[in-house]
Amino acid sequence: QVALSRTQVCGILREELFQGDAFHQSDTHIFIIMGASGDLAKKKIYPTIWWLFRDGLLPENTFIVGYARSRLTVADIRKQSEPFFKATPEEKLKLEDFFARNSYVAGQYDDAASYQRLNSHMNALHLGSQANRLFYLALPPTVYEAVTKNIHESCMSQIGWNRIIVEKPFGRDLQSSDRLSNHISSLFREDQIYRIDHYLGKEMVQNLMVLRFANRIFGPIWNRDNIACVILTFKEPFGTEGRGGYFDEFGIIRDVMQNHLLQMLCLVAMEKPASTNSDDVRDEKVKVLKCISEVQANNVVLGQYVGNPDGEGEATKGYLDDPTVPRGSTTATFAAVVLYVENERWDGVPFILRCGKALNERKAEVRLQFHDVAGDIFHQQCKRNELVIRVQPNEAVYTKMMTKKPGMFFNPEESELDLTYGNRYKNVKLPDAYERLILDVFCGSQMHFVRSDELREAWRIFTPLLHQIELEKPKPIPYIYGSRGPTEADELMKRVGFQYEGTYKWVNPHKL
């Protein structure tokens, strides 16, 4: 086992960053958080920038500027975001240094004079007029057009580079997404736009490419001749908990499936790229999406959770019991969808996408189930092999396979070949997804960000279904809070070829 401390991990990262040409360590950078008073800024962006600063992973002359409508001070920003920093008493001095680099400007999102004030403020910072500028839009999409237009007109660096990070949702359907994309691309070049999907920053999602293309053993079996089906799962054990009003506007397909799960599907299904260059990788992902037809209604199961009468606390409440959810809402909190990649490698292999709230566990994984062994000599005792990439929690890679049961006879039983990170790298604290992705933006690497043509294809696949749901308002199937979801989803999976045995229990190697 390799035991690495946080300091050692960050030392390795620093070495990698400083050796590259793309990370300008000594240049002045300004990180501007648009929507600095909001939840995302408070819980994710400010803490992430602090962790990067604490670990010495930001360029040395980096300033952080918050911008929002609320009249706040840096002290206010500190008060609301610091509880999420997880700072230790030993880091007190470092924390003071961090907040000394912070400033805040209040202004409207659609007022040109406010942006001119913001620009004057940035120019007044040390070497601010020639600094590289990175704008993070932690804002609702309704203000994107006004904000990007004003940034472009008043706040661009004339000497350094300018980059803009856009948070999902990128529209509600193909038409609104196209409108937003066309607007942003009329102001910024594609190499300046970073559409963030934080799932692409997760260690195991990034590991998929290495697993596939750096190991000879997987190449020959990664196709329709050997793989019976692919299941991509995202499960949350909690409901909307008072935030249903926002969720109800989008629903589970827009929230998770059309982005996170579809991105994971691309990494499983794509061909080997010409290189690890950002556009070479994204070219292959677009090719996969172009091979997927629009979702067919007979390959869809929609569910909505109801309270568990035997549960406790939140578990007793259904989705419609959330006071922020519109009365009688038919918005799905669970969806199972089957897609097919219609190309030579994957023809006929079902890709089953499942996601839901208020389920029995927290889990995100990719599961490849292989065909049955031909010419069975073990009297149907063999179960199908599976390769599982567990994204969260407890990152893991393992192969479910058959071995001989101890004893006199040739009785096979299920076991696993474990390729888990935790076994080799004991207690290594890896940077989280937002840390990686923000560092990628500083480096100018777009590999783990969504390109406009990729986004367009993703919406093309799901828009007809979303429009049909909005028009017909089908009643989702009720499922109990804390269950596996509607049984109809299991029946759909069985119908397209997935075999669920229920006889195997994964042993978490992190707890051995």
Rank of each mutant, 00 (worst) to 15 (best):
R254E: 00
R254D: 06
D255L: 04
V256I: 13
V256M: 08
M257I: 09
Q258I: 04
N259Q: 05
H260M: 03
L261D: 00
L261T: 05
L262G: 07
L262D: 01
L262Q: 08
Q263F: 00
Q263H: 05
A269D: 05
A269Q: 00
M270H: 07
M270P: 02
E271D: 09
K272Q: 09
P273W: 00
A274K: 15
S275R: 07
T276H: 08
S278P: 12
D279I: 12
D279Y: 10
V281E: 04
R282P: 02
D283L: 04
V286W: 07
K287N: 10
K287M: 08
V288T: 11
L289N: 00
I292L: 11
S293D: 11
V295T: 13
V295C: 13
N298E: 12
N299D: 11
N299F: 08
N299L: 10
L302R: 11
L302F: 10
Q304F: 04
Y305K: 02
Y305E: 00
Y305T: 00
Y305I: 00
V306Q: 13
V306R: 15
G307M: 08
G307C: 10
E312D: 15
G313I: 11
E314P: 10
T316R: 15
T316G: 11
T316D: 08
G318I: 03
G318S: 14
Y319C: 02
Y319F: 05
D321R: 06
D322G: 05
D322I: 05
T324E: 07
T324W: 07
G328Y: 12
T331S: 10
T331Q: 14
T331C: 09
T331I: 06
T333C: 00
T333Q: 03
F334T: 04
A335Y: 03
A335N: 03
V337N: 12
V337R: 00
V338H: 08
V338A: 14
L339N: 04
L339W: 03
L339Y: 05
Y340G: 08
N343I: 03
R345M: 10
R345Q: 10
R345L: 09
R345H: 12
W346N: 00
W346I: 02
D347E: 14
D347W: 08
P350A: 00
P350L: 00
P350N: 00
F351C: 04
F351M: 06
I352C: 00
I352G: 04
I352V: 13
I352L: 08
R354N: 01
R354E: 00
C355N: 05
K357I: 05
A358M: 04
L359C: 12
L359P: 03
L359H: 06
E361A: 08
K363V: 05
A364H: 04
E365P: 02
V366K: 02
V366E: 01
V366A: 07
R367H: 01
L368E: 01
H371A: 10
D372I: 02
D372F: 01
V373R: 05
V373M: 09
V373S: 07
I377V: 11
F378C: 07
Q380D: 14
Q381F: 09
Q381T: 12
Q381M: 09
K383Y: 14
E386V: 03
E386K: 01
V388G: 02
V391Q: 04
N394H: 09
N394F: 09
E395C: 08
Y398V: 00
T399H: 11
K400I: 06
M401F: 11
T403F: 14
K404L: 05
K405I: 13
G407F: 02
G407T: 06
G407I: 02
F409W: 11
F410A: 15
F410Q: 15
F410E: 14
E413F: 11
E413A: 11
E414L: 12
E416P: 02
E416Y: 06
D418F: 02
L419R: 05
G422W: 08
N423E: 15
R424T: 07
R424C: 04
Y425P: 05
Y425H: 11
K429G: 15
K429H: 12
K429F: 09
L430P: 14
P431G: 11
D432K: 09
R436S: 10
L437N: 03
I438Y: 06
D440Q: 09
V441T: 14
C443S: 09
M447I: 11
H448I: 01
R451H: 04
R451T: 04
D453G: 00
E454M: 02
L455D: 05
W459I: 00
W459Q: 01
P464D: 10
H467K: 12
I469F: 13
L471T: 14
E472G: 13
P474L: 12
P474I: 11
P476S: 07
P478K: 13
I480D: 13
Y481G: 06
S483K: 08
T487V: 15
A489H: 07
A489M: 08
D490P: 02
E491P: 01
E491V: 15
K494D: 12
K494E: 15
V496L: 10
V496H: 13
F498N: 12
Q499L: 11
Y500G: 02
G502S: 13
G502I: 06
G502H: 11
T503P: 07
Y504A: 04
Y504F: 05
Y504D: 04
W506D: 04
